[in-house]
Nucleic acid binder design. Sequence first.
DNA 1: AAAGAAAATGGCAGCGCTGCCATTATTGGC
DNA 2: GCCAATAATGGCAGCGCTGCCATTTTCTTT
Lengths: 332, 332
Amino acid sequence: MEFKHQATVTLAEVAEAAGVGESTVSRVLRNHGSFSGKTRDRVMAAVERLGYVPNRIAGTLASTASRLVAFVIPSLSNIVFPDVLRGASAVLEENRYQAVFSVTDYDPGKEEALAAAMLAWRPAAVMLAGYEHTEGTVKMLRASGCRIVELLDLDGDALDLAVGFSNRAAGRESAAFLLKRGYRRIGYVGHDLNRDTRASKRFSAFCETLGAHDAPLADREILSGASSVENGRLGLERLLARTPDLDAVYFSNDDMALGGYFHCLARGIAIPSQLAIFGYNGLDIGRATPQPLSTIRTPRVATGQVAAQLVITNAPSQVVDLGFELIEGATA
Amino acid sequence: MEFKHQATVTLAEVAEAAGVGESTVSRVLRNHGSFSGKTRDRVMAAVERLGYVPNRIAGTLASTASRLVAFVIPSLSNIVFPDVLRGASAVLEENRYQAVFSVTDYDPGKEEALAAAMLAWRPAAVMLAGYEHTEGTVKMLRASGCRIVELLDLDGDALDLAVGFSNRAAGRESAAFLLKRGYRRIGYVGHDLNRDTRASKRFSAFCETLGAHDAPLADREILSGASSVENGRLGLERLLARTPDLDAVYFSNDDMALGGYFHCLARGIAIPSQLAIFGYNGLDIGRATPQPLSTIRTPRVATGQVAAQLVITNAPSQVVDLGFELIEGATA
DNA sequence: AAAGAAAATGGCAGCGCTGCCATTATTGGC
DNA sequence: GCCAATAATGGCAGCGCTGCCATTTTCTTT
C-alpha cells in the first residue's frame, strides 16, 4: 500500500461535494454570516463524509487574525509555570485559542531568541514571566503589535498587560509575619537569584523589612542551582553549621522550605520552637506535611486564567493584582 | 500617537530594500540553496534595518512542511507531563520546531476534540499519552498522515511511534520487590483509575504478581479525585482504619506515597518496620525526605527527548522502551 | 579565448483559506 | 401581485511565503 503523507481534503473539495460555493462552506464552518439550514446540513454532511479538517494555517494567513497565544516561560520544573499554563490553557481551549510555548531556562538571551521565534507565528499575544527582559526583546515585542502579557510580577513597569502580584509585598509580609511571631535571628536559604529575579525581589524586600525593625538578616545561604527540595535541605544544613543560633529561616520557595523541613525532621530539630520555617508559593504538599508549612500562597492558576481572559477579550492595557495569601501553617 | 496593530514587514519589502529578488531573501534566511556572501550581507542588513520577522504561518502554508509538534496531554498537575514537555521542548527548540499543547483532563472525549483542533494546525506530529484513545481519535489521526507518538506506555499496540516503558512491568517489579522483602499483608492506595489507565495497568499487574505468590492484595482504598499528597494521606488513613494489620502499602504515585509517609510521621507509625511504603515515579522530593522513598523512577524527561528526536529525524514506526529503575529507598 | 559547468539569482504560480463585493433567491408590506 | 428589503450565495483576489524553472553571471578547463 502506498504511503500518503497528507490526505489533504480542502475546503474547495467540500464545496464541490456539497454543491455550494467555497465561501458558503467557510461561513457554515465558522458559523459566521448567513446561510440556510438546508445548506448547513448539506455542508456538514460533506465535511463528515470527506473527513475534512480545516487548515488553520491557511485560515490564519488569510484572515491575519491569529488565535495563537505564545508562552515564553523560564522553566517547566518550577511548578509555578505549569500551573500558569494550566489556568491559561483551560480558558484558551474554551475559546478555540491555541497555546504554544517555549522554555528559556531563565536565560534572558534565550528569551530573546525564543520570543523572536514565537513572533514568527504571529500570535495574538505573547506571555512572559516578569518584567526583566533584554532591550532587544522589548523592542521586538513592541514592534510586533501583538499583545504582551507579563506574568507573576508587578514590581516594575508593564509593557502592556500584567497579571500577578507584588513579589516585594510577599517578601515584606513574610518578614512582618516572622517578626510579629517574635523571631529575631532570621536567616535565608535561596536558590540562584541572578536568574530568578522574582525571588530576588522577595528577598530584598524581606531584608529591608527586617532591617527596618532592627532585626537584620542574620545569615544567608544561596545555592547555585535551581530551586529544589534537595538544595533546600543542603542549604539549611550549611546555614546552621555556620550560624547555629538562628530562630527562623525564610526560604526562596516551598520546595526549598520542604527540604529544610525534612532536614529538621531528620536531625530532630523541633519546629517551630527550635527553628521556624517559612516558605513561598503555597504548594499543596505543604498542607499535607505533619505540620502544615507556613508560607505564602500565590494565585498561579488564576494568573493564567486572567491573563488568557484579558487577551481573548482584547482588554485595554492594564495591571491586574491578584494578591496572595499568607498561610500561617505550623512551622513558624 | 496612532496604534498600529501589525507593523508587518514582508519578505517582499526586504527584497526591495536589499535590491534582490524575493527568492534570494528566502534562500539567505533559510540558509538553503546558493547565494554569494555579498548578497547575504546586503539581505541581512535590510532585515536588520527593517526589523523583519519572517512569517512562519505563510512559510508553513507555502511549503506544506510543518515544524509544529502538538502535545495532547491529560494534565499539567501531574508532574509527569511537564517533565515530558520539558524533555521534548529542549530538543524541539534546538531544531527550530515549535511545541503546541492542550490538556484533556483525562477525558477521552476531550482528547478527541482537542486532537481534531490540533490537526487543524497541520503539525508534523501529535504526541499523546498512552494507548487508550477513542475510535474517532484513532481514525482522525490515521487519516491526517502526520506522525503519531504515544508516550509513557508500552502495554498495547502502537499506532506509529511509541516511547516509554511498561507500566505492567513496573507494577510487577514493585510487587516482586515487596514480596522479596518479606511483606505479605499488602494494601493499595490509589487515585481514580478509570481515568488514568496507566496507573490501572500498574495496579492490575501488581495484584496479579501478589496473587501468583500467594499473597493476594489485602485491601485497597481508591480515591475519586486526582493523585495528590492529601489524597494519599487520606487514603492511607482510611485503609488502616479498615485493615490495621497491613505490613506494606503500594501507592499509585509518589505524591500519594508522600501523603502516606506524612500520615505515618504524624501518627508515629514506624517506617518501614511497622508499615512499608512504596511509590511510583521517582520524584526528586522522595529522595530528600528523612527516609528516601522506595519507588520506581520513570524516564519522564528522556521520554520527551526521545520522542522529539524520533519525530525530527522522521524515524520509521517503532516502539522505544526506555525502561525504569527501582529505587530501594528506606521506606520498604 | 571559447565552451561548458557551476553558481547566483529572479519570476511567478500556487499553498488553502477569508473578506469583500456582486449577484440571486426570499420575504414582507400595502 | 409589485417592489423594496433582507437573506443566501458565489466568485475571486489576496494573505506572505516557498518551490520550481528559467535566466544570468562567474568560474574552469582546454
